[in-house]
Nucleic acid binder design. Structure first.
Length: 269
DNA sequence: CTGGTCACCTGGAAGC
DNA sequence: TGCTTCCAGGTGACCA
C-alpha cells in the first residue's frame, strides 16, 4: 500500500473538503474488500465529519458517535470527485458530501472500510499497534529498548507494526540506506548510536516523502485529486543491479520475509 | 511470547 | 500478437 506518507498526504488532502460537512449518502458498489463492508457504513448518511485522523496507516473519520475506519491496503486510494463522474471498474465506495464525492478505489481489494463506535485505539486492528515514527516519543533510546530482545533482522523489525507503525517496504530500505545499516543486521545488535542514526533516517525519509506529496504509488493522486505530484527519487528501492547513487557499487536485491529488500553492500554494514 | 510462512486479489511488465 | 510467469505499496491468520 501506500505507506505512512501516502496515507498522511491523503488525510491532509481530504480533510479540508470533508471536515464540518455532512455525509448525505453512501454508495457501496463492491462490499468485498479485505473484510465485508459492514451495514453501519451504508447507514452513515446524516452524520457530519468532525475530523480526519490517522493512526499508523489507518485513516479515521471522526463522526462524533463513532469512527469510519479506512485502510488503503496495497492499491487503494481516496479521492474527491464531482458528483456525476462515472465510477471506474475498481471504484468501490462513494461517500457523497453533496457538492463533492469522496471515492474509494482499490483494484486489489486488500483495503478495508469499517465502522467502530468505540474509541478507535481500542479497535482490534489498532489495539496492538506500535509507536508512531514521527512522534517525539520515537527516539534512539526508545528504538534501542524496543529492539533489545529481537533476533530478527532490522529490516523486518522496522516493518512489524506491533513495534513501529507506518514504515513499509520502500521506506524501510530507504531508511536503512540513509542510516548506513545493513538490512540483515539483527535488531538486538544495534548500538544506541546506530539507533540514533536510524531514527533520524526514518523521520527524514518519511517527512521528505510527505513533503513530496507522498508518492510511492505510480498512479498516486492526492486526496484533492491534484496531479503533478513529485515522484520520489529512491536511493536504493527498485534499483537492483544499478549503481549506488553514493558510491556506484551495484545495488543488491535480496528477499526478507518474502519481500524485496534493496541495499548497497558498500554503504551499508 | 517470537519468528517464519501463506493467503487475500488484480493488473502491469517481462519473457517466450 | 498472445499466452505465461513474475512481481507489486500490507497485514491478519496460522504454524512451530
Amino acid at each position: 500500500m501506500p505507506e505512512l506518507p501516502e496515507v498522511e498526504v491523503t488525510r491532509r488532502g481530504i480533510a479540508p473538503h470533508v471536515v464540518g460537512r455532512r455525509i448525505v449518502g453512501v454508495k457501496v458498489r463492491e462490499s468485498r474488500l479485505r473484510w465485508r463492508v459492514p451495514r453501519a457504513v451504508r447507514a452513515l448518511a446524516g452524520r457530519a465529519v468532525r475530523a480526519v485522523k490517522r493512526r499508523a496507516k489507518y485513516l479515521l473519520l471522526d463522526c462524533g458517535d463513532g469512527h469510519l475506519i479506512v485502510h488503503l491496503g496495497m492499491s487503494g486510494s481516496l479521492r474527491l470527485v464531482a458528483p456525476g463522474v462515472k465510477p471506474g471498474k475498481h471504484d468501490h465506495i462513494d461517500f457523497s458530501f453533496g457538492e463533492q464525492v469522496l471515492r474509494l478505489r482499490d483494484p486489489r481489494r486488500f483495503g478495508a472500510v469499517l465502522w467502530t463506535d468505540q474509541p478507535p485505539e481500542a479497535h482490534r486492528l489498532m489495539r496492538h499497534l506500535g509507536i508512531e515514527p514521527l512522534s517525539r516519543r520515537f527516539d534512539a533510546r526508545r528504538l534501542h529498548a524496543l529492539t533489545r530482545k529481537h533476533r530478527t533482522s532490522i529490516k523486518q523489525f522496522l516493518m512489524d507494526g506491533r513495534r513501529i507503525v507506518g514504515v513499509g517496504n520502500i521506506y524501510a530500505s530507504e531508511s536503512l540506506f540513509l542510516a548506513g545499516i545493513h538490512p540483515r543486521t539483527r535488531a538486538r545488535r544495534l548500538s544506541l548510536q546506530r539507533c540514533e542514526r536510524l531514527v533520524a533516517a526514518i523521520k527524514q525519509t518519511l517527512r521528505a516523502a510527505i513533503r513530496a506529496g507522498g508518492s510511492t504509488l505510480r498512479d498516486f493522486v492526492g486526496g484533492d485529486g491534484a496531479r503533478g505530484y513529485y515522484q520520489t527519487r529512491y536511493w536504493v528501492y527498485g534499483r537492483g543491479g544499478k549503481g549506488c547513487r553514493r558510491c556506484a557499487a551495484p545495488v543488491r536485491r535480496i528477499v526478507q520475509g518474502q519481500r524485496a529488500t534493496y541495499y548497497c553492500a558498500r554503504c551499508q554494514r
